[in-house]
Amino acid sequence: MGKKLVIVTCITCPQSCAIELVKTKDDYEVSGNKCKKGKEYAIQEVTNPMRSITTTVKTIFKDFPRLPVKTDKEIPLNDTFLFMEEINSVLVKERLKPGDIVLKGIRNMDINLVATFGL
C-alpha cells in the first residue's frame, strides 16, 4: 500500500507554508515547514484542528455597543458554533481593559473569553 500524503497550509503566520505530511507507524514525517511551529501546527491540523475564536460581545454602553473578545486558548474547530452560542449570551456591564476576563470557563472547559480592547 502506498503512503498517504497530506498537504496542510500553515496558518500560523502570513508565509502560508504548504506543509507535507506522510503518516509513519506512530508519527508523521513532516516537510515543507519553514519553522518549528509549522510542524506542530500540521500534526495538530490532521489529528484535531484547533482555532482561536475572535468575535464581539454586547455591552450596556451606548458609546461602545460591542466589545471585541477572543478565547485565551485554541478550541476544537468543530465545536466553534457551540462556543459561539455561549459567547453570544454575554452582556458586558463594566468598562473592561484588554486581557480582562469576560467569561470564565466556557463550556465548562479551561478556556476563558478575554477582552481585546478597552471600553
Binding site: 500560523t12 503566520c13 502570513p14 482561536s52 475572535t54 468575535t55 464581539t56 471585541p68 477572543k70 484588554p98 481585546t116 480592547f117 478597552g118
Partner: peptide, 29 residues
C-alpha cells in the same frame, strides 16, 4: 484612536514586531 484596527477583531497582527499573534484592537491598544 486606533484607525481601522478597531474593527479588525481577528488575529494575526504584530507577528513581526511583537513575535506574538495579536488581534487588531490589541495591536492598536
Amino acid at each position: 484612536l486606533g484607525g481601522i484596527l478597531k474593527q479588525c477583531i481577528h488575529d494575526g497582527f504584530g507577528l513581526v514586531t511583537f513575535k506574538e499573534k495579536l488581534t487588531g484592537p490589541e495591536y492598536a491598544w
